[in-house]
Amino acid sequence: MWQSILKFIQKWFHRFGSPRWFYQTTGKWLPYLAVISVGLLVLGSIWGLGFAPQDARQGNSYRIIFIHVPISVLAMIGYYVMAAAGAVALIWKIKIANMVMVSAAPLGAALTFLALLTGSIWGKPTWGTYWVWDARITSMLILFFLYLGVIALNQAFTSRDTAYKACAILSLVGTVNIPIIYKSVDWWYTLHQPATIKLTGASSIHPDMLKPLIVMILGFYCFYALVLMLNTRTEILAREWRSSWVRGLSQ
């Protein structure tokens, strides 16, 4: 029985590993995913902006939380998505994994940028300043640099195969280092923690605030999947343009 399961997984793996299969299958999913993610994001935004109760301490400025938190979470998960795809590509030599990895980099960088930006806009009414050298912000900034490194490396090579492998290695090295970087930044922050600025911890979030937040988180997850698929499909076209099925698309 185990062997048949293994065989099934292997078969699925190889089918999924084919760019053509990926392109055709995701093509069917895209409209649904687009509708679901836009629907959830619009619903969550209206709910969060208009109907969630005001925060006792921060007033209305806290409403940025509904975009800031999901984006920050995805920015971090995105790096692991990228590195996991890179690992799969290196170990099993699956073409499509490379393309997913390369597509996850600019998406992750954009989300990290947004996380920093919304955070700093939120910081102004909350702490009176756009930028604080807080542990979480600093870690986010370093994450942004890590993404930029992968993007820059990807663009530097003329040979696509080399670029893929190089990016996979770099993102794996980055993944191993991320926990260490985060811990060290955390520790650094406790050393220098200024007494005047106190971040609002995740003390207690009102359930009426939590519900729209969950809707937004789900919406952003779908959006992430959607854009990752779109980017990967573009990458497939750019790399597989010689193959007959891609030529067939334009006829």
Binding site: S45, L49, Q54, N60, S61, I64, H68, I121
Partner: peptide, 15 residues
């Protein structure tokens, strides 16, 4: 947004 409109709306707009 009781005075915080600029921040909230720019954050949402840019996003």
């Amino acid at each position: 947004m009781s005075g915080h409109g600029v921040y909230v709306w720019t954050a949402y707009g840019i996003t």
